[in-house]
């Protein structure tokens, strides 16, 4: 198992390099550049040329990429890049004087806290809902939960979030309208500090977590239901019943673990997507999260932020998938790593 994990991590390196390379090259290949506009005025060509030179955007592509990966020092050039290999993601092209590392360090924790809570919500609502719907197949409980799941799956965040704000913040006044309850410095770099983790923090979190998590909860509920309905027709479930076990024991002990195997598959990508930030929810609730920065940077052609955030997303995704594979082995003893 340990050797398997090491091997997987070593396999990540070329994958991550490839992701970085493609993002790096493709962003620079699309038309437009980071210094086309300041506000809504275009900059004089001379100024643009100076800026391009300052950020080495006038170098050939291979040299820019090398500078990004190994740093300027190793290339024997003057410059600020210390290189990806030393963990330096470069300077933002639009937020003067801010490094991508700084920007991620302030925005990722918000996205991660939000996404993690949304994922927990999705699991703790989705799995029981799907299980109950399957057990009460073709009853009003099943129909109601199916209806709710389909509704939540098809309502976009863009619609759901304002509705939640309107009802629960504006009309009922139960929760604040916007903003996040925790600010830097973060505990261990990503958790809210202990004095910030109070009722107020969670009140701020409720609406965005719901806005973000309900569609995942609905998806997991659908998948759990379908998977469980398939598992309860398996021969070993009949064997379990023929032993005289209660139906509850049959489901919880014999069916649920088997039925979660496909559910775990979607948790990996869902985790990566939720944790690295979602543009719409962050924008509507005015959260200073990574998703918002990511989308803004695409419009701004802020190459460094885009490449850095994409790389981070890729890292979270491969780690999430590794965790998924490890939990497979726990769920299904037929899977062994060696």
């Amino acid at each position: 198992m340990f050797r398997y994990i090491i091997r997987r991590i070593l396999q990540f390196i070329p994958v991550l390099l490839a992701v970085t390379f493609f993002t790096f090259v493709m962003m620079r290949a699309i038309p437009g550049g980071p210094f086309d506009f300041a506000g809504d005025r275009s900059l004089p060509p001379q100024v643009v040329a100076n800026l391009n030179a300052r950020y080495h955007l006038d170098w050939p592509m291979w040299k820019q990429f090398l500078s990004y990966v190994v740093g300027d020092e190793m290339l024997g050039e003057e410059g600020s890049s210390r290189g990806l290999i030393r963990g330096d993601l470069g300077l933002s092209l639009r937020y003067r004087g801010q490094s991508v590392n700084d920007i991620i360090a302030t925005t990722l924790p918000v996205s991660a806290q939000l996404g993690f809570m949304a994922l927990l919500l999705a699991l703790f609502i989705g799995i029981p809902m799907g299980t109950i719907a399957a057990l009460k197949q073709n009853t009003w409980i099943d129909y109601t939960s199916t209806f709710a799941a389909v509704a939540f799956l098809s309502i976009p965040n863009l619609v759901l979030a304002p509705i939640l704000i309107w009802i629960f913040a504006l009309k009922l006044g139960w929760f604040p309208v916007a903003t996040w309850g925790a600010k830097p410095p973060y505990l261990w770099g990503f958790l809210p500090s202990l004095e910030q983790m109070n009722i107020d923090y969670f009140k701020h979190a409720v609406l965005p977590v719901f806005a973000l998590g309900t569609s995942s909860a609905a998806g997991i509920a659908r998948l759990t239901r379908a998977s469980l309905l398939q598992v309860v027709n398996e021969d070993y479930i009949r064997t379990a019943r023929s032993k005289g076990l209660r139906e509850r024991t049959v489901i919880i002990v014999h069916a649920l673990k088997n039925s979660l195997i496909p559910v775990v598959t979607i948790i990996g990508p869902a985790f990566a997507a939720l944790v690295t930030g979602t543009f719409v929810v962050e924008l509507i609730f005015g959260l200073n999260g990574m998703g918002k920065h990511f989308v803004n940077s695409i419009g701004n052609r802020d190459y460094s932020i885009i490449t850095g955030v994409t790389l981070l997303y890729a890292i979270v995704l491969v780690i999430a998938n590794l965790l998924v594979d490890i939990s497979y082995a726990w769920l299904d003893p037929r899977i062994r790593f060696d």
């Binding site: 009949r238 023929s242 005289g244 673990k257 037929r334």
Partner: peptide
Amino acid sequence: MRRVRGNEIAMIFQDPMTSLNPVL
């Protein structure tokens, strides 16, 4: 009926490959 099953009347089935729970 549950007290009868597996206790008074036990049953074995056709396909041994699928009749046991793979995860237990």
